[in-house]
Deep mutational scan, measured.
Amino acid sequence: TYYTVKSGDTLNKIAAQYGVSVANLRSWSGISGDLIFVGQKLIVKKG
């Protein structure tokens, strides 16, 4: 599943919304830090 980052989103908010960890969200999407951008597509795998 892809999630497109919206204004005001954080990795914590997105992870909580999908019931996954921030570490997994980073790993799946190839992100090393906490910086995400509006319009960026993140990969989300539901448990």
Rank of each mutant, 00 (worst) to 15 (best):
T1I: 15
T1D: 13
Y2E: 12
Y2D: 07
Y2G: 06
Y2A: 08
Y2W: 13
Y2Q: 09
Y2H: 10
Y3D: 02
Y3I: 09
Y3E: 02
Y3S: 00
Y3F: 03
T4V: 15
T4I: 15
V5H: 01
V5K: 00
V5P: 02
V5T: 04
K6S: 08
K6C: 07
K6Q: 14
K6V: 11
K6W: 03
K6Y: 04
S7K: 13
S7L: 15
S7D: 14
S7P: 15
S7T: 13
S7M: 14
G8E: 06
G8D: 07
G8S: 05
G8M: 05
G8F: 05
D9K: 00
D9R: 00
D9M: 02
D9H: 01
D9L: 01
T10Q: 04
T10I: 04
T10L: 04
T10C: 06
T10K: 04
L11C: 04
L11P: 02
L11R: 00
L11E: 01
L11N: 00
N12Y: 14
N12G: 13
N12C: 14
N12V: 15
K13V: 09
K13Q: 11
K13D: 12
I14H: 00
I14A: 00
I14G: 00
I14W: 01
A15W: 02
A15H: 00
A15Y: 01
A15I: 02
A15R: 00
A15N: 00
A16N: 11
A16W: 10
A16V: 11
A16L: 13
Q17K: 13
Q17R: 13
Y18N: 07
Y18L: 14
Y18F: 15
G19F: 07
G19M: 08
G19L: 07
G19D: 09
G19P: 01
G19E: 09
V20A: 05
V20I: 14
V20G: 01
V20M: 08
S21R: 04
S21M: 06
V22T: 08
V22H: 03
V22L: 09
V22A: 08
A23R: 08
A23M: 08
A23C: 11
A23S: 11
A23D: 15
N24K: 10
N24A: 11
N24Y: 06
N24H: 10
L25C: 02
L25R: 00
L25S: 00
R26M: 13
R26S: 08
R26T: 09
R26I: 14
R26L: 13
R26W: 04
S27Q: 14
S27V: 12
S27H: 14
S27A: 15
W28T: 06
W28C: 04
W28Q: 06
W28R: 03
W28F: 06
S29F: 05
S29H: 04
S29Q: 07
G30E: 10
G30S: 09
G30L: 06
I31P: 02
I31C: 05
I31E: 03
I31K: 02
S32P: 08
G33Q: 08
G33E: 09
G33P: 03
G33R: 05
D34N: 11
D34A: 07
D34L: 07
L35F: 13
L35P: 08
L35D: 15
I36K: 01
I36R: 00
F37R: 09
F37P: 04
F37E: 11
F37Y: 14
V38P: 14
V38Q: 08
V38F: 05
G39P: 00
G39S: 04
Q40C: 05
Q40H: 04
K41S: 09
K41F: 08
K41I: 15
K41W: 07
L42P: 01
L42D: 00
L42C: 05
I43E: 07
I43Q: 10
I43T: 10
I43R: 10
I43Y: 10
V44I: 15
V44Q: 02
K45V: 11
K45A: 13
K45E: 11
K46L: 15
K46R: 12
K46F: 15
K46I: 15
G47L: 13
G47I: 13
